[in-house]
Simulated assay, not measured.
Amino acid sequence: MPLAEPPADITPNRPSHVAVIGTGLMGSAVARALLNNRYPVAVWNRTAGRCESLRDLGAQIADTAADAVRVSDVVILMVLDYAAARQILDESSELLRGKTIINLVTGSAAEASAFGAWVDDVGGTYLDGIIAAYPGQIGKPSTLFYYAGSLPAWTRYKTLLTALAGAATFVGSEPSAANVIDAAMTATFHTVSIGAFLEGLSYARSAGVDLDEIKRTLPYWLDLLSQELHVAIDDVQARSHTTDQATLETYLVALRTINKSMVGSGERAHLLSAAIDNLERAYAAGHGQGALSAQILTAQAER
């Protein structure tokens, strides 16, 4: 069945239809948030049955991705990767002129730049986005998405984009910018931090420590971590790594001892060992009396 044509009296900067291509867990959450905010939504998924739960909420089910694109001003991609997204849009590239493509697929900075260039070539405007949330957080005021690419598209559809994530922010006109922040925060900081935390929990549990005691003091450590991260950013921006608190050498001596205890008790402590390796390199380069942030100097020098 053909999809309904968009109504004639569309509010300025509010799309006639939004196509959501890919309705897995995250794609379905995105479609629901749009429908809850009274956006006309056309959805498509390779496995058509995954769209059915959205029909009762008012979504139009497209027979093909091209059908969804045809009736929409904004196309949101929620598929597996950039290659899948490109393959799907290649089949309807002639329909993309004048439309805004919002790619929420996880990939690399290079893929984002290449995809953005391709969208420009076919006459569309492009936003590359990173979802810093789980499906259950979609549509909430505190949820964060990063967007990069076309500033006019961000400005025009900001109301739509903040309906998905109230804390959504634009981070730059280069489409790769959102992916770079994702690598820095989601992969390097968030995921590795949780892994290091679990290494510590494993050690504490094996030593018979009540983990509720760690839970009780967790707010203190999270607040301290936030303070230290802000100091580190200030140090890097100022290109100054002096300190009148704990030096890099002080951390290194302490972590060597802790690592020995953890490994000696049978723990792997891989992430702690990696942290020590970074400190050892900075210390060997003469930064022992600097702040903990001074280890970034050796990371830059070794590139």
Score class of each variant (00 low, 15 high):
1 M>L: 11
1 M>G: 13
3 L>P: 08
4 A>K: 13
5 E>R: 12
11 T>A: 15
13 N>D: 15
23 T>W: 02
25 L>W: 02
26 M>P: 03
30 V>F: 09
33 A>G: 05
34 L>Y: 11
38 R>A: 14
41 V>L: 06
41 V>P: 06
43 V>R: 08
45 N>S: 15
45 N>E: 10
46 R>I: 10
47 T>G: 07
49 G>I: 08
49 G>T: 15
59 A>Y: 07
61 I>A: 02
62 A>Q: 05
62 A>R: 01
65 A>C: 09
65 A>T: 04
66 A>K: 04
71 V>Q: 03
72 S>P: 06
73 D>G: 13
76 I>K: 00
77 L>T: 09
79 V>N: 01
80 L>K: 09
82 Y>A: 00
83 A>M: 09
85 A>K: 00
87 Q>N: 14
88 I>Y: 04
94 E>W: 05
101 I>T: 05
108 S>P: 03
110 A>E: 14
119 V>I: 15
122 V>N: 08
130 I>W: 01
130 I>D: 00
131 I>S: 12
133 A>Y: 09
133 A>F: 08
134 Y>V: 13
135 P>F: 03
140 K>G: 08
146 Y>F: 15
148 A>S: 15
154 W>P: 05
154 W>S: 02
156 R>C: 11
160 L>Q: 09
162 T>G: 01
165 A>D: 04
168 A>H: 01
170 F>C: 03
172 G>T: 10
175 P>E: 00
175 P>F: 00
176 S>I: 00
177 A>C: 09
178 A>V: 02
180 V>G: 02
185 M>T: 12
187 A>F: 10
196 A>L: 14
197 F>W: 10
197 F>A: 03
201 L>C: 14
205 R>E: 06
208 G>Y: 07
215 K>M: 04
215 K>I: 02
215 K>L: 09
216 R>V: 00
217 T>M: 06
218 L>K: 03
220 Y>C: 05
221 W>P: 05
222 L>Y: 04
222 L>T: 07
227 Q>S: 11
228 E>G: 13
235 D>R: 12
238 A>C: 07
239 R>V: 03
242 T>E: 15
252 L>W: 15
254 A>Y: 08
256 R>Q: 15
257 T>M: 08
259 N>E: 15
260 K>R: 14
271 L>V: 11
272 L>V: 05
280 E>H: 12
282 A>C: 10
286 G>A: 02
287 H>I: 01
289 Q>R: 15
290 G>W: 05
292 L>T: 08
298 T>S: 13
301 A>F: 02
301 A>Q: 13
